[in-house]
Design a protein around this nucleic acid. Structure first.
Length: 570
RNA sequence: UGGGCCGUGGUGCAAUUGGCAGCACGUCUGACUCUGAAUCAGAAGGUUCCAGGUUCGAGUCCUGGCGGCCCAACCA
């Protein structure tokens, strides 16, 4: 991964306080609890694509290992074959790598430990701590009681050990239909924590597993399996989200019952972002009902979506660093993510000129059939990025928004009789606006000052505005897609009774500009190429680009003081 | 009297563990400017959920409230 803390500024970097998990780790290191070892893991279930919420967990777990010289495993929690697929495994591996993290050797799988888990469960049965229960689902639910009332023991709770061992072996082999039996831990049906009311350890599932095929007819439940996976791998700090706090006693119970290496489970608040959703289920719905074009739609909060949108991995890591780690439920403003994205792209993205909504301009005193090349700076933030040539000619395109017939005083751009600078080129003055029969301006007539070549006036006169442009006969047509929040509301789930998050879907999350014109230097750029269209925003060459036609996705707009002023006036 | 967790500017986090409530984003000014970007300078914004208590001193400790979130899948 890229180091965001360069050694150079470590000295004068502000002292950052530790988050509560780092404090635990440092305390453990002080007391020698784990012999100075730090071993974490990121344990996704391969039943969907990774999103920005997962990124927080990934950065936390891999980041902790890195900070304290430890290790972090990528481990698939593949204990439910009916929901999991190889497709997701592959995608998750790709996304974690893209985010900038790596691990020792091959990824790990919970399913690799199935045999060991089975042996341990037999041991628990023999210890009188687990039993095979024949109760059907509904009956189990009924006997579990409720939040305020205790549960009741299963009639199979005290079944002879040998019988349970025998039945469990038959369950494993597939002698019983799905749902007919479970293996349950014998804990306490009256416990205030529902998780301890004889939780199911194994259910029967005649399903094909992406890795173990049809070897198994029983699959372990999360609570039973997870601690064992952590234990087997020698995990020290098992970090998960808040909703598992209630499960920690069970995590601890199993490990204690077996007397195994016992990692510490620590819970933190997951990342939530305004104007978007983190629910895998809802994201899947958006894909399935074609609200978006797929998991990698640039509007999706998935890592693939953000990657396609042009968000650099570094920015996402930066966000995760900035949001911190705590136990309070919170929702981060999307603007913080955008700030992180602009911040890295400002330093790295080469600049180009592209006209989103072209308006033709004829420079009347510029010779016909002639053109010249002007020097343009590739990245003012990075001199080593060098310069490039930009062709100029008599007919150019400028942005429609950069011209107003009757501009207000504060409008620094083109108007009739006004002079502006064409970036890196000449000062031009607008002499006439040509309209069609509907009154729409379709072309501008201008004159230029040859003495201002390169963009400076020898007489020292200033212009207030500088606008971007492309030469008409050299420009490349391109398709551009602008994106906005998928949801209008900060909290998409805030819907009236009887309605769901869909009512908050934004009408303008996607704007397609079919007739954009970009400078010829962009010819041949490949998908994934990041750039800035000056004065407009950061963009990324999209996957849909072909040798015949370029498509750009807007990553994020530039901050726009003018747009803000206009908004205020309304 | 089910259990668990959490309450600090608009948002996300800090506060040397009892010592002047800070940082970042956002917002608003201004400067600079061949990107109305970036950069720079500045400002506004807090009853630290409430009420008591301990203390010279409480965001921090104690007591009692209030509020929010999570838990009754053979999901994770």
């Amino acid at each position: 991964m890229t180091d965001t803390n360069t050694p150079a500024n470590v000295e004068d970097a502000p002292k950052r306080s530790l988050n509560f998990i780092q404090e635990i780790v440092e305390e453990d290191n002080r007391t020698g609890k784990w012999g100075g070892k730090v071993h974490t893991r990121f344990p996704p279930e391969p039943n969907g694509y990774l999103h920005i919420g997962h990124a927080k967990s990934i950065c936390l777990n891999f980041g902790l290992a890195k900070k304290y010289g430890g290790k972090c495993n990528l481990r698939f929690d593949d204990t439910n074959p009916v929901k999991e697929e190889q497709e997701y495994i592959d995608a998750i591996i790709e996304d974690v790598r893209w985010l900038g993290f790596d691990w020792d050797g091959e990824p790990l799988y919970a399913s690799s430990y199935f045999e060991q888990m089975y042996e341990w469960s037999v041991q628990l049965i023999k210890d009188g701590k687990a039993y095979v229960c024949d109760l059907p689902l509904e009956k189990v639910r009924e006997l579990r009681g409720s939040l305020k009332t205790p549960g009741k023991n299963s009639p199979f709770r005290d079944r002879p050990v040998d019988e349970s061992v025998d039945l469990f072996e038959k369950m494993r082999k597939g002698d019983f239909p799905d749902g007919s039996k479970t293996l349950r831990a014998k804990i306490d049906m009256t416990h205030a924590n529902m998780n301890l009311r004889d939780p199911v350890m194994y259910r029967i599932l005649h399903a094909t597993h992406p890795r173990t095929g049809s070897d198994w007819c029983v699959y372990p439940m999360y609570d039973w399996a997870h601690g064992l996976e952590d234990s087997i791998e020698g995990i020290t700090h098992s970090i998960c989200t808040l909703e598992f706090e209630d499960h920690r006693p069970l995590y601890d119970w199993f490990l204690n019952a077996l007397g195994l290496h016992h990692p510490q489970q620590i819970e933190f608040a997951r990342l939530e972002l305004t104007h978007t959703l983190m629910s895998k289920r809802k994201l899947l719905e958006l894909v399935q009902d074609n609200t978006v074009t797929g998991w990698d739609d640039p509007r999706m909060p998935t890592l693939r979506g953000m990657r396609r949108r042009g968000y650099p991995a570094e920015s996402i890591r930066d966000l995760c660093d900035k949001v911190g780690v705590a136990k309070m439920h919170s929702t981060v403003e999307f603007a913080l993510l955008e700030h992180c994205v602009r911040n890295t792209l400002n330093k790295t993205a080469p600049r180009f000129m592209g006209v989103l909504n072209p308006l033709k301009v004829v420079i009347e005193n510029y010779p016909e059939n002639e053109s010249e090349e002007l020097d343009a700076i590739n990245n003012p933030e990075n001199p080593s990025a060098g310069t490039r040539k930009v062709p100029f000619s008599r007919e150019i395109y400028i942005e429609r928004d950069d011209f107003m017939e009757d501009p207000p005083r504060k409008f620094f751009r083109l108007g009739i009789g006004r002079e502006v600078r064409l970036r890196y080129a000449y000062f031009v003055t607008c002499t006439e606006a040509i309209k069609d029969e509907t009154g729409e301006v379709v072309e501008l007539r201008c004159t230029y000052d040859p003495a201002t070549r390169g963009g400076d006036a020898p007489d020292g006169r200033k212009v207030k505005g500088t606008i971007h442009w492309v030469a008409a006969n050299h420009a490349i047509p391109a398709g551009i897609r602008l994106y906005d929040h998928l949801f209008d509301k900060e909290n998409p789930n805030d819907a009236p009774d009887g309605k769901d998050y869909r009512v908050n879907l934004s009408d303008n999350s996607l704007t397609v500009l079919a007739d954009a014109m970009v400078e010829p230097a962009l010819k041949g750029t490949a998908p994934g190429f990041h750039l800035q269209f000056e004065r407009t925003g950061y963009f990324c060459v999209d996957l849909d680009t072909t040798p015949e036609k370029l498509f750009f996705s807007q990553t994020v707009s530039l901050k726009d003081a003018w747009a803000k002023m206009k908004k205020k006036d309304k």
